[in-house]
């Protein structure tokens, strides 16, 4: 077992009121497995991962257990958590356009992350990165290092973010809606990259998305959240084929409705 989350509760409080945002979230991620978290905006998908990774500030109260390689993440000291974050648990964020610092070149970002975790020189870091770039089909690393984030497309930046996450050889990658901000062509690239990671290495993935069709490509297990509660959790095929909860059925139904017409137009061609 790589990650085991038990009864995760998150409350937000200020001096006046207290709101429960997540209620009794329980799930497991095995080694080399992919868990998909499905939910609409505001259902608590990102919050779950923020809580596990210790990214929430003091106004959030997190209770429960999250065992990662037999350590309870939620009781670890800040310094220890910081070492795990990035090295063991890497994150891929939602909008690549804003996740990078616009004042640094791509090379700068890479050197900063890798030098911090691997205690190597800048040059070593960039050389090592060139190999990772090859794995994700990014050519000409020298040219990319010299660019600033605004000079590259969203899909390109997202692939760079994936390579930075990969370079530290984490045991778990949390991908928080990695494809929402980019178009279909780049979406497909990102998905096939993540699929490749799963085939080539032992990395586990938590893939957060509101898009069921994306999850169906990657996930082994799917957990569906609705307003901070788990409404469905099981093997991906079962959840897609025969959803039990009403909310999941609703999500699948509306998504299918939307895609139906497009698929109809597309499959026409195969007949004619």
């Amino acid at each position: 077992m790589l990650l085991e989350v038990k009864d995760l509760n998150v409350c937000w409080r200020d001096h006046k009121n207290e709101i429960q945002l997540l209620k009794d979230i329980t799930f497991e991620v095995e080694r080399n497995q992919c868990l998909g978290i499905l939910g609409e905006s505001g259902s608590g998908k990102s919050l779950t991962c923020g809580a596990i990774n210790g990214l929430l500030d003091e106004s959030f109260q997190v209770t429960g257990n999250a065992f990662f390689e037999n350590q309870d993440l939620l009781t670890l000291k800040k310094e220890q958590r910081r070492k795990i974050r990035g090295k063991k648990i890497a994150m891929i964020l939602q909008s690549p356009m804003t996740a990078f610092n616009p004042l640094f070149t791509i090379g700068g970002h890479i050197a900063e992350t890798m030098c911090m975790h691997l205690q190597c020189s800048c040059k070593e870091a960039l050389d090592q990165m060139a190999q990772v770039f090859q794995r994700v089909n990014l050519s000409n690393p020298k040219m990319i290092y010299a660019k600033y984030p605004h000079e590259l497309s969203g899909g390109m930046l997202q692939r760079i973010m994936i390579s930075i996450a990969l370079s530290l050889q984490p045991s778990l990658i949390i991908a928080d809606e990695p494809t929402t901000a980019i178009d279909y062509v780049s979406q497909k690239e990102v998905i096939s990259e993540l699929q490749m990671i799963r085939e080539q290495s032992e990395t586990s993935i938590i893939f957060i998305s509101h898009d069921l069709s994306l999850l169906s490509h990657l996930a082994d297990q799917i957990m569906v959240l609705n307003q901070g509660q788990m409404v469905e959790y099981g093997p991906a095929q079962d959840v897609i084929r025969s959803p039990k909860s009403e909310h999941t059925q609703h999500l699948i139904q509306t998504r299918r409705l939307l895609v139906q017409r497009f698929n109809h137009y597309m499959t026409n061609q195969h007949v004619s």
Binding site: Y184, H217, R241
Partner: peptide
């Protein structure tokens, strides 16, 4: 063509009706 095939690939899950 690229766009259409990418979209078709990604939405594949919904081409066949639910069992």
């Amino acid at each position: 063509k690229q766009l259409l095939s990418a979209a078709h690939f990604l939405e594949r899950a919904f081409t066949e009706p639910a069992a």
